[in-house]
Amino acid sequence: MKKFLLMSVLYALLVLPSLAAREPNAARGVKRAVAMFVAYNFFYIFVVLVVWMSMEG
């Protein structure tokens, strides 16, 4: 599980921009990519603080 959490950063770097690239409008695609990265970072912080810390104990 820990390895997947660490590898998810690499997956996000590949998947999120490819999803945003499908947007026909370039400016909207950049905004979508930034929004997805921000949402991913908040989710990642939550998972690390809750799940990772519960695995330590």
Rank of each mutant, 00 (worst) to 15 (best):
M1R: 14
M1F: 13
M1K: 05
M1T: 12
M1S: 15
M1D: 15
M1P: 15
K2G: 11
K2V: 06
K2N: 14
K2M: 10
K3P: 04
K3D: 12
F4A: 14
F4H: 13
L5A: 00
L5D: 00
L5P: 01
L6V: 15
L6R: 13
M7E: 09
M7A: 15
M7K: 00
S8Q: 05
S8R: 01
S8A: 10
S8W: 00
V9L: 02
V9T: 06
V9N: 04
L10S: 13
Y11W: 12
Y11G: 07
Y11M: 03
Y11L: 00
Y11T: 03
A12Y: 07
A12H: 01
A12D: 08
A12N: 02
A12K: 03
A12W: 01
L13Y: 10
L13M: 12
L14G: 14
V15D: 00
V15S: 00
V15Q: 02
V15F: 07
V15H: 06
V15P: 04
L16N: 04
L16F: 07
L16G: 03
P17T: 03
S18Q: 10
L19C: 14
A20G: 03
A21P: 01
R22G: 14
R22S: 09
R22Q: 13
R22V: 15
E23T: 10
E23K: 11
E23V: 05
P24Q: 06
P24C: 02
N25F: 05
A26G: 09
A26Q: 12
A26E: 14
A26H: 08
A26P: 11
A27N: 03
A27Y: 05
A27M: 04
R28G: 03
R28A: 04
R28V: 10
G29V: 08
G29H: 13
V30R: 01
V30F: 15
V30G: 09
V30D: 08
V30S: 11
V30L: 14
K31E: 14
R32D: 05
R32K: 08
R32C: 06
R32L: 10
R32W: 11
A33R: 09
V34H: 10
V34T: 12
V34Y: 07
A35I: 04
A35L: 04
A35W: 01
A35G: 13
A35E: 07
A35K: 06
M36D: 01
F37D: 02
V38S: 05
A39Q: 12
A39D: 09
N41H: 11
N41F: 13
N41R: 08
F42D: 08
F43E: 04
F43L: 09
F43D: 05
Y44G: 06
Y44K: 01
Y44C: 02
I45S: 08
F46K: 01
F46P: 10
F46I: 15
V47M: 02
V47L: 08
V47C: 10
V48P: 03
V48F: 00
L49Y: 09
L49R: 14
L49M: 13
V51Q: 09
V51W: 08
V51P: 04
M53H: 07
S54T: 13
S54G: 06
S54D: 12
M55K: 04
M55E: 13
E56M: 11
E56N: 14
G57D: 08
G57W: 12
G57S: 05
